[in-house]
């Protein structure tokens, strides 16, 4: 690096270029060491971007369903199992518990007296209800199959399974994330950005599920 080289006087500005060398530096010296609160957190950015993609994938499935519904007159109504309502409630509870865990933990950190035990308890509850949601979804599929609402007999059924299974796969990933922060929280080496990123993901799973559920009630 030829940094010792100091240029004697201000060179004429080339066409089209503004000299904004007086702009304040915007980043800490060492990348990856953003210690102040305003520093960017790649984990959070990454999660936001991931959520955008996931939303887009479900948008694609939705528009495919709408087009397919209009394409022929074989769209049939599915009587949704009541269990779906209970599952929805469970997933919402899980999200609330996670939010409580997050706040308790971060609060504890701020005041130097970790209420980690309580936070872990909330987190455990959230994790278990997440698993319960998944199990509930499996029971729903099983109930529907028992009623011979199978995958291929109508496009409605196909899209029902595609949407719910694809969502469940993402929920399973989220449960993996919850397990990860559960382990870290117990050891008390959980970073703020990891915690926040995981929470965003999990809350998004609830929002996504509510969207799907409304769609199911309305269109299926």
């Amino acid at each position: 690096m030829s940094l010792s080289h100091v240029i004697p006087s201000k060179p004429p500005l080339p066409r089209g270029q503004r000299d904004n060398s007086a702009l304040p530096p915007t980043r800490d010296d060492k990348p990856g060491k953003h210690l102040d609160a305003s520093a960017p957190e790649p984990a959070l950015t990454g999660i936001w971007v991931a959520l955008a993609t996931i939303a887009m994938m479900f948008a694609a499935f939705t528009s495919a369903a709408v087009v397919r519904q209009g394409a022929s007159n074989d769209w049939e109504h599915i009587a949704l199992p009541a269990l779906l309502y209970i599952n929805t409630g469970i997933l919402i509870l899980s999200g609330i518990a996670l939010e409580l865990a997050r706040r308790t933990y971060l609060n504890g950190v701020k005041h130097g007296m970790p209420s980690a035990k309580i936070a872990v308890r909330w987190l455990t509850f959230s994790l278990l209800s997440g698993v319960a949601f998944l199990v509930g979804q499996i029971v729903v599929w099983w109930q529907l199959l028992a009623r011979s609402v199978d995958f291929i007999s109508s496009p409605t059924n196909s899209f029902f399974y595609v949407l719910t299974v694809f969502h469940a796969v993402h929920v399973a990933g989220g449960i993996g994330g919850l397990v990860r922060i559960w382990v870290k929280m117990r050891r008390f080496d959980l970073k703020r950005s990891t915690l926040n990123a995981t929470c965003w993901y999990w809350h998004f799973m609830s929002v996504l599920w509510i969207y799907i559920f409304v769609l199911l009630i309305w269109k299926f």
Binding site: M1, S2, L3, H5, V6, I7, P8, S9, K10, P11, P12, L13, P14, R15, Q17, R18, D19, N20, S21, A22
Partner: peptide, 27 residues
């Protein structure tokens, strides 16, 4: 310190200034 393409300048015998070269005297 500056925009990416500082070419066509008269900078101590070079016609370019790198983005990370510290700066002109007055700054």
């Amino acid at each position: 310190y500056r925009d990416p393409y500082q070419y066509g300048v008269d900078a101590a015998g070079k016609d370019f200034v790198m983005q990370n070269e510290p700066f002109y005297a007055e700054s």
